[in-house]
Lab assay of single mutants.
Amino acid sequence: SPEEIKAKALDLLNKKLHRANKFGQDQADIDSLQRQINRVEKFGVDLNSKLAEELGLV
C-alpha cells in the first residue's frame, strides 16, 4: 500500500541521514537527504525514482 511504501522510504532515508551526520558527509548531501524526506512526507514515493529502485519496488 502507499502508506507502507512511504513508511519504508522514510525509514531508509532517515537511516541515510543519520549515517551522513555520524560520518560527517558534505552539508550538501545532508541537505539533499532532508529534501528527499520532506518530498516523501508530502507526496509519497514516485515509482519511477531511484528511491523506488532502492526499495525494490521497480
Rank of each mutant, 00 (worst) to 15 (best):
L55S: 01
A9H: 01
L47F: 08
E53V: 14
N14C: 14
D46R: 06
A20Q: 04
K50R: 08
A52H: 03
S1Q: 07
S32Q: 12
L33T: 03
S1H: 09
A7G: 05
E3K: 08
P2W: 14
L57I: 11
G56R: 04
L47K: 06
R35W: 11
R39D: 15
L10A: 01
D26R: 07
V45N: 01
E4H: 09
L57K: 03
V58W: 10
A20R: 00
E41K: 13
L17K: 03
V40A: 02
D31P: 03
D46C: 07
V45G: 01
D31S: 08
K16Y: 06
F23H: 11
D29N: 11
K15P: 00
P2M: 14
L17T: 00
D31F: 04
K8I: 12
S1V: 08
S49K: 02
G56D: 05
S32V: 10
D46G: 06
K16S: 04
E3A: 11
D11F: 11
L57R: 03
K15V: 05
I30T: 04
I5C: 06
D31Q: 09
L10V: 03
A28D: 11
Q36P: 01
L47T: 06
N38E: 15
A52F: 09
D26E: 09
N14V: 09
A7C: 09
N21G: 08
L12V: 07
Q27W: 10
L13W: 00
G44A: 02
L51V: 04
D31W: 05
Q34D: 03
L33P: 00
G24D: 06
A20G: 03
D26N: 14
Q25T: 12
K15F: 05
G44D: 02
L57Y: 09
D46A: 06
N48A: 10
R39I: 14
N48H: 11
R19A: 14
E41R: 12
I37G: 00
V45C: 03
A7M: 12
K15L: 09
R39S: 14
F23L: 14
P2G: 09
L17M: 05
K15H: 08
N14A: 12
E54F: 09
N38L: 13
I30Q: 03
F43Q: 05
D11R: 09
K22H: 11
V40S: 01
E4C: 13
L33S: 00
I37V: 05
L33N: 00
E54K: 04
G24P: 09
V58H: 13
N14L: 14
K42Y: 06
L55I: 06
A20K: 03
L47G: 04
L55Y: 02
S1N: 11
H18F: 12
L10I: 09
G56V: 03
Q34N: 10
L55H: 01
Q34I: 15
E3V: 05
H18A: 13
L13Y: 00
D29C: 15
Q36G: 01
A20N: 02
A52G: 04
K8M: 13
N14P: 00
Q34H: 12
L47Y: 07
G44S: 02
L47S: 05
R19M: 15
V40D: 00
D31V: 08
H18V: 14
R35A: 14
I30P: 01
F23D: 13
Q34C: 09
N38S: 12
I30M: 05
E41H: 11
S32T: 11
L57E: 03
A28H: 12
R35Y: 11
G44F: 02
A20W: 12
L13E: 00
L47V: 07
P2R: 11
I5M: 11
A9I: 08
F23E: 15
K50M: 09
N14Q: 13
A28R: 13
L51W: 06
G24K: 08
L33F: 04
N48Y: 09
D26F: 07
N48C: 11
K6S: 04
D11P: 00
I30E: 03
L12K: 05
V40L: 07
Q36L: 15
V40K: 00
H18I: 14
N21K: 15
D11K: 12
V45E: 01
L12N: 03
N48E: 06
L55W: 03
